[in-house]
């Protein structure tokens, strides 16, 4: 049922030629230069450290590596990170099941 609704939404947004990011419930990662990362519609934090942050975005994990990380905002479903980002990794759940 949920899958069907998701498919309908996707089709509707394609038909209206809307960017997929505007759809509700889709995880988004916004990177501002190399100093700020905003993640929305996430499931939750996985690991947090001064030099590494792993975030569960549902179908995958996003791993940020860098230095001097500060989580400027952490609410349910949204995370703002500030710091110098060296490396961003996208880890599919299929290949890297925890």
């Amino acid at each position: 049922m949920r899958k069907l609704r998701k498919a309908w939404k996707r089709r509707a947004s394609e038909w209206l030629s809307l960017p997929p990011a505007t759809m509700a419930g889709v995880p988004r990662v916004l990177i501002v230069a190399d100093e700020q990362v905003v993640m929305e519609n996430i499931v939750g934090l996985e690991r947090v450290d001064e030099s590494e942050i792993v975030v569960d975005i549902g179908e995958a994990h996003v791993r940020l590596a860098g230095e001097g990380f500060e989580v400027t905002l952490a609410v349910s479903g949204e995370i703002h990170v500030r710091g110098r980002v060296h490396h961003i990794e996208f880890i599919r759940r299929r290949g890297n099941e925890r």
Binding site: G44, V48, E70, V71, T72, L73, A74, V75, S76
Partner: peptide
Amino acid sequence: LQRRGVPMRHV
């Protein structure tokens, strides 16, 4: 805390 939905700032 994040998983529980506790809003935090300036972590």
